[in-house]
Amino acid sequence: MTGFFAYLKKELWEQLMTMKAVIICILFFLLGIISPIGAKYAPEVISRLTKDSITIQMADPTYLDAFAQFFKNLSQLGVIIFVIVFGNVLSQELTKGSLIIPMSKGLSMKAVIHAKFIALVFYWTAALAVSFLSCAIYTRILFSEINLEGVAILLLGSWIFGVFLISLIIFSNILCRGGYISLLLIAGCVGVLFLLNLLPDVRDYLPLKLVGVDVASALINQDYSFSKSGAVTCMLIVAFLLISHICAADKRKFCN
């Protein structure tokens, strides 16, 4: 357990020193402010781009548009940025051989996996908090009116989806040695999820349901529920971590 805490501390510190954590926070901050700005000024920009002979009637943007844009950006661009920045967090160490020394001193591969997972979950939570706070502050300034009721459950959905992707990153890093191959595996898994999403019977059980919600309608009607997809996603997170543990038993030979 001491090894785990020491490695967790090292991991949190390393992501900070390599600037990855700072970059993620800055990018998520920009992602947060882009959403209300885009929602506020997009109709004006579109109306200026069209010619005088064409009239486009657009409803005045509200804070709901800003939140809809925010959750859309978060589930697409945000997730892609996070996977690119942290996609090779474990495979890099395995290929460089930097785990050999700590493991020869008794650190188990299980502790490494747990520490990496918790460090990434910590940075995902921090990035989500920075992003949402910047979005909420800018929405308040630009739209004057803001209602945060129901936003927490949508944020929780995005958070669980992010944790699911982190478990997928750990799993793919353990399974594949090269950084780019593990990124391809993650993309492949997400591709399979999109294909499964085409089937109406299983759609409600997929992790994509957590982030594929109509935000404006969910906030107005307060009818958003993801109990099925949330439960399935939590099971998938545990399954990916368990498979990683099983594969890591062989990986120890690889590290030595």
Partner: peptide, 19 residues
Amino acid sequence: ELLLVLAPVVLVEIVLAVL
């Protein structure tokens, strides 16, 4: 409004470039 939109972006750009 222009300042509100641009100020954080400019600040982030300068801090990142210096670092």
